[in-house]
């Protein structure tokens, strides 16, 4: 592909000016950009902005936009806070040689339907911090139509939640056919479902149903799964039909809930 004008900003301010001010294309890992093979008139490489970090910020864990999938997968901070959640969810993304490249910011900005990270972040009620000084919760970001250019600085996740992840894939490295995250947060249950094949979405009805129960148990988990499958829309793609997704959604949701209640 061709990039007519390649910039390598050294500060967030400079990057902001290029991306938001001049409409340059933000380049994170670039893996997806390369696959889509667009020619770019102007690109701003975000490598040198110091955004590759995972750290605790008060009640939150902050993921710098340039933290890679491999960083998240192997992060001891994330493991302490959420157990094997991130590792389990992200280890299905291609091979390590790709996870070393692709970034948290790229996955969020792209709003990819297949994104495991979005499913997990949505269930954990994460928010996106845009440079400069604008924070938006992920749920409302995903619902809004993509608008003016923006620059993601980091993603912040409340630390007090517990969550589990389930997915169905054709082969271990393939995109998921369906992915599920079930979380218990301070505000109650949050179930999110991705790869429908549309992007991750919450299941508020399943959530409130679970909130109404003392302990979901076997039956409650199953019921919640059925409710989730009913309140969501599903579509067809190469990997599976809407019907198939609808059939396995309750199964995976129930499994995620059960595992969380163990």
């Amino acid at each position: 592909m061709e990039i007519s004008c390649y910039h390598r900003p050294r500060s967030l301010e400079e990057a902001y000016d290029l991306v938001v001010g001049q409409g340059a294309y933000p380049l994170a890992g670039g893996a997806w950009t390369l696959i889509s093979r667009k020619n770019l008139s102007s690109a701003a490489d975000l490598s040198d902005l110091g955004l590759r970090y995972i750290k605790i910020e008060g009640e939150y864990i902050a993921l710098g936009a340039m933290a890679t999938a491999r960083d998240l997968e192997t992060s001891s901070l994330l493991a302490e806070a959420f157990g094997p959640l991130f590792s389990q969810a992200l280890r299905g993304i291609a091979g390590i040689q790709i996870r070393t490249i692709v970034t948290a910011g790229g996955s969020v900005a792209g709003r990819y339907g297949f994104s495991e990270l979005l499913v997990v972040l949505l269930a954990l009620d994460a928010s996106i911090v845009f440079y400069k000084d604008r924070t938006q919760c992920l749920a409302s970001y995903l619902n809004a139509a993509p608008g003016a250019p923006f620059l993601i600085e980091k993603i912040i996740i409340p630390r007090n939640a517990k969550a589990t992840y389930q997915c169905m894939r054709q082969t271990a490295n393939d995109f998921p056919i369906l992915s599920i995250c079930a979380a218990r947060t301070s505000a109650g249950w949050r179930i999110s479902v991705g790869a429908r094949p549309q992007a991750a979405a919450l299941c508020p009805q399943a959530g409130s149903f679970l909130n109404s129960l003392e302990n979901p148990g076997e039956d409650g988990s199953k019921r919640a799964g059925l409710i989730a499958a009913q309140e969501l829309s599903f579509g067809d793609d190469l990997r599976a039909s809407a019907e198939y997704r609808r059939s396995i959604c309750p199964v995976l949701v129930a499994r995620a809930i059960r595992e969380l209640c163990l």
């Binding site: 696959i35 054709q170 082969t171 271990a172 490295n173 393939d174 995109f175 190469l238």
Partner: peptide, 25 residues
């Protein structure tokens, strides 16, 4: 799996869409 669209275009035309077994499978 092999899939074509209604116009006869092969949809499973990359290793991203045509999935061969990895060592985990």
């Amino acid at each position: 799996n092999v899939k074509y669209d209604a116009k006869g275009r092969l949809k499973t035309n990359s290793l991203r869409s045509y999935t061969i077994p990895s060592r985990k499978d």
